[in-house]
Amino acid sequence: MTEPTPDDSRVIAVMRLSGARFNSEGMPADALVEVAAFEDILRSLVRLYWRDRHPGRKRMPNGYDDEITLRLTAIGEGSAVPVLEHDATLRADDLFGPDEIKEDFARAIDALEQFVNYGYSDKGQIPDDIRRLPSNKMKKFGQTIRKGEAIQVAATVPDSWDAVTRFTPDARRNALVTLVGNFTQRVTVEGQVIDFRVSSGSLVVRDREHKADILVPYLESGVRASIDSAKQLFECVAEGVGEFNADGKLTKLTTVTSLDVTDVTEDARVVRAALDALADLDDGWLDGESGEAISQAVIERGHAVIDTMIALSNITRTVSPTEDGGVSFFWPDAENQLSIEVEPSGALYIHTTDLAAGTFADDKIASDAVDLVDTLDTWLSEVTGE
């Protein structure tokens, strides 16, 4: 990794990204958006300061944006340490006063440092300068940082980063909730599509992990879903930037980086039809004497199990009657030999077997259990074979 040798007269700002991802040489490409967000905040504040000094001017003077351009000149040692410099060649004609611009950048860095300090300590106040910026600019700063990582900012490379406040995911959440009432971060949404909103180019996913219905924009993701019937069923996996409210509840995806929508209609149709066919069995269906008829209550309970399979994206087509009047679902390709039996009482009996180890696990779910998604989540999340 190259140790920066910046010209101190040109250095405007330095940031440090720490965590396991940043310990190797160079810098992860997906983290460069943090540099862009950092630079955008500084330049936006400098523009505000210019307007404060020129309240009668409606437009920025020609060339001012070029004049305040910052350049990434080095990635220093000690995790990833991007150094931003003010390009001296752009100051040759002294159009706007280089000293004034440097003072404005110093003020901008100080405001951002106070914002970081507030998020980390929950003491003091968020600077008024930060509150004047559009909220989306502040939301972008730190949104790729993961648990165990942090961002630090300074006007120059410090002797030691230990004394510089760390902008962790928790600090960011605290600061943004105070600033705008919500926060954003990278997230994966996975679950059943419960609504297509064609007019707005979005779909609604009933996400299993976050236990909420999440709005996901799909137009810019190139998704093409052929909807032939209101009875079609779709599963969705979406990655992107999610917006969370002050209570930490995911409400929507603001941007989508990847989106996969799968039609699971056929598997669901087959197993539902197979289950419904079992209702036609009469007493003695097994050998003329054995085999109890299957009640409508058992069939309805079986449909609740199928709905749970759909919600948890693990559908089997294999369903069979049991001799005592129940029905049994079986996953023939599952590594754990999973089976779920609906007993005549409506209770569920779950059984798995580890053939290699010669062990098994089982569980019983009462007939009055309503939320089968939570109850069966662990069992239906088991890895299936190819």
Results as ranks from 00 to 15, higher is better:
163 A>C: 10
165 T>R: 10
166 R>Y: 03
167 F>D: 01
167 F>T: 05
168 T>R: 08
169 P>G: 10
169 P>Y: 11
172 R>F: 06
172 R>T: 01
172 R>M: 05
173 R>P: 00
174 N>W: 00
175 A>E: 06
176 L>P: 01
178 T>Q: 14
178 T>V: 09
178 T>S: 14
180 V>C: 13
183 F>R: 06
184 T>M: 11
185 Q>P: 05
187 V>W: 00
188 T>W: 00
188 T>Q: 08
193 V>E: 01
195 D>A: 14
195 D>W: 04
196 F>M: 07
200 S>L: 05
200 S>C: 04
201 G>W: 01
202 S>E: 14
203 L>M: 11
207 D>I: 02
208 R>D: 09
208 R>N: 12
212 A>M: 01
214 I>D: 06
215 L>P: 00
215 L>I: 11
217 P>Q: 02
217 P>T: 13
217 P>D: 04
218 Y>N: 10
221 S>Q: 11
221 S>N: 13
222 G>T: 06
223 V>T: 13
223 V>W: 12
225 A>Y: 02
225 A>L: 05
225 A>N: 05
228 D>Q: 12
228 D>I: 03
230 A>Y: 09
232 Q>H: 03
238 A>P: 02
238 A>G: 02
239 E>L: 10
240 G>P: 01
241 V>P: 03
241 V>I: 15
242 G>L: 07
244 F>P: 07
247 D>E: 14
249 K>D: 15
252 K>V: 07
252 K>D: 08
252 K>N: 06
253 L>N: 03
253 L>E: 02
257 T>W: 09
258 S>V: 07
259 L>A: 07
259 L>E: 00
259 L>S: 06
259 L>Q: 02
259 L>P: 00
260 D>C: 04
261 V>M: 04
263 D>L: 08
264 V>L: 06
265 T>C: 05
266 E>A: 15
267 D>V: 12
269 R>P: 01
270 V>N: 13
272 R>P: 08
273 A>L: 11
273 A>D: 14
275 L>D: 10
276 D>Y: 11
279 A>Y: 12
280 D>A: 15
281 L>C: 08
281 L>F: 10
281 L>Q: 11
285 W>S: 07
285 W>D: 02
288 G>D: 04
288 G>I: 12
288 G>V: 11
289 E>M: 12
289 E>W: 06
291 G>F: 00
291 G>W: 06
292 E>L: 09
293 A>T: 08
294 I>D: 01
295 S>Q: 01
296 Q>H: 10
296 Q>V: 12
297 A>Y: 12
